[in-house]
Design a protein around this nucleic acid. Sequence first.
RNA 1: GCGGAAGUCGUAUAGUGGCUAUUACCUCAGCCUUCCAAGCUGAAGACGACAGUUCGAUUCUGUUCUUCCGCUCCA
Length: 480
Amino acid sequence: MATEQNNLAAIIAHCKEYGFVFQSSEIYDGLAAVYDYGQWGVELKKNIKDTWWRSMVYMHENIVGLDSAIFMHPTIWKASGHVDNFSDPMIDNKDSKKRYRVDHLIEGHVEQMSLGNELIVQMEALLAKDDFGGLKQLIEDNQIKCPISGTCNWTEVRQFNLMFATQLGSVAEESDTIYLRPETAQGIFVNFLNVQKTGRMKIPFGIAQIGKAFRNEIVARGFIFRMREFEQMEMQFFVRPGTQKEWYEHWKKTRMQWHLDLGIAKDKYRFHDHVKLAHYADAACDIEYEFPMGFKEVEGIHSRGDFDLKQHQEFSKKKQMYFDNDIDEVTGKPYGNYIPYVIETSIGLDRTILMVLSEAYTEEDLSTEDKKDSRVVLKFPPKLAPIKLAILPLMKKDGLAEIARSLMLECKDSFLCFYEEKDAIGKRYRRMDALGTPFCVTIDHQTKEDQTVTIRYRDSMAQERIHMNDVKDIVMQALK
RNA sequence: GCGGAAGUCGUAUAGUGGCUAUUACCUCAGCCUUCCAAGCUGAAGACGACAGUUCGAUUCUGUUCUUCCGCUCCA
């Protein structure tokens, strides 16, 4: 009987041991919350990206791809709200859970109580010194209360530098501060008209992008779940105002189906609808997966309204409008010029990798009465498996290796194959199990006579005798 | 960020203020074997880092880095 276990520590150790994920800069004691993908991790990651891209871009005639740069004009982050919301000292009220910019809180208090300038002067002196302790003291000494909860139960004052800053230009004094993007979405928004015009796109249409994003998280933890450098797969879908509700529902359903198509059971997922909405959204939900550490967000679906395009129109002074020639049945006239509304689907690639790993990782007890035995197997869907096929001559001699090599040559152009002639065949099977390889074929003496090989299936461990010419087709069939 | 715990070969582990720092698996070379982790021979590989105490520190102390657990945060 198989015993199944899903604990994070075992998965982390397995990822390290079998070349999926390494701690970044490990020989220098590592770098917190940064990880590298090893030889098999990178294949898994690529396969997940391909699956997403295929389903979003190839399967939708009205969605096209984009690869915008990580560096963007600094004003973009002012327009998006990232600069203002995250560069000033903040304080949270523990009772209302409301977060305030410290300067706004104190200024608001002064205004409300019609106090003099003195408090503002003190505050500015403390702000200039980055004296967060002093700022908190100032708030407490003056009995500044949260307008919502009415209490003085404050956290420490903290500075949230969400974005990583760097310098553009090689001479420091002349350089401009720019940011590493904290989300790929803005690169899509600022290219909205480029793509719409050159692609002759008609609303509704979408732009998809896979790419790195960077966030200076206060707490980055949970293996590859929350990293400082991570990768997103985002799609922004532009719709006619007034239709956003139905499109939001459409994408909720479509994205959940994508998850289920990975072969993951429905009860491992749930929707989490946001009650408290962000400044830009009129509806938002997360798709959560039950990780070893509990239900956590993998993907977000947000109805962003026209917030982003409107902001960019204002900051760039360039119209971000679309002319809609379709006839409005109510007025009998074209819908005309408008700023489209946006539905965003945004999935964390690294989180998806962890999800797929968590789902695949299985420890099986294969003990019989006379022999204790066990195996660790990664039960990836074949299309996600790093290696699709292992080609194993039963032994090195007697020309078996040559036959195996010819099969390698036939298959390696179509999918990733792994050739191995060392060690007993059972050991090689188990090694492939640990990497999640769905198929192994073994070439033996009989192959020389009738061109048949043994195919061995990862999940069932069953073996079958098939003709060598059929191997490629069987694997290709499983990858669909 | 706060509180707690922990870092010994790739993985999992044992142990010690003092002799060449265990053991298993893994890896590598060879022999043998050949359809589910076989055997034999041999080899490589670790006390996270930096200080301090000490004649001597992997062990005690401090700092730091990293990881895990709980809280917190998550536009």
